[in-house]
Amino acid sequence: MNNIKVKVKDLSLRYGTNLALKNITMDIPEKMVTAFIGPSGCGKSTFLRTLNRMNDLIDNVTIEGEVYIDNINIYDKNIDVVNLRKKVGMIFQKSNPFAKSVYENIAFGPRINGISQKSVLDEIVERSLKQAAIWDEVKDRLFNSALSLSGGQQQRICIARSLAVNPDIILMDEPASALDPISTAKIEELIHELKQDYTIIIVTHNMQQAARTSDLTALFYMGDLVEMNKTEIIFSNPAKKQTEDYISGRFG
């Protein structure tokens, strides 16, 4: 097993008075793919969003507990959330490229970090698009609107955009749920490539996808972490009855 990249300790989250995550504790290893599965409303996406403090944006949310990334508690009050998010990138369920050109989408991150030199930007854009395996498809229309691309291409643009700021961790919130099977396959292939360099955490409602792409799988149910283990164990020999029921489709 690789080093522990993310260490979560007793994390609870409330929307107002409603307890949405209950005392979650888990370790996520470096440079592997960890999948969160569970029925909708189980808290898996909410949990994912606690890892780059995206829930800070929502009124009414209170969080207790600790999340360590590289041994630093990201809920410490001295934490710089902006820089945290540079290290922990995020891909959303609905692809959300900006209404700008492909090039400007990728260059957005580097630009906000103060890089304005054209040659450097060009290089980052090319490298990121290549890493996201979409360079060949868009290299001739870098200056067309990103919104003119297909849904699957848009999602890979979003991945490239996230890679351009050089994160350590990439959070993916059901990245392929809105895509057709061919685009989904491309995204999954890409995830496989990316785990050489990045720690990837993916939320999915699709159990086959979790089984195909991940090294570790965690099952959530009603705000609880039911079970977390190596993916092959979760899918072949789960420790808990609840996991078995879910895997075999008896609920959820």
Binding site: I74, D80, P110, N166
Partner: peptide, 18 residues
């Protein structure tokens, strides 16, 4: 940024201090 091997690169972006 140009460094492809992320392991050897130094961490420039730190978030432990506001």
């Amino acid at each position: 940024i140009n460094n492809k091997n992320k392991n050897t690169g130094k961490d420039i972006v730190t978030f432990n201090k506001k």
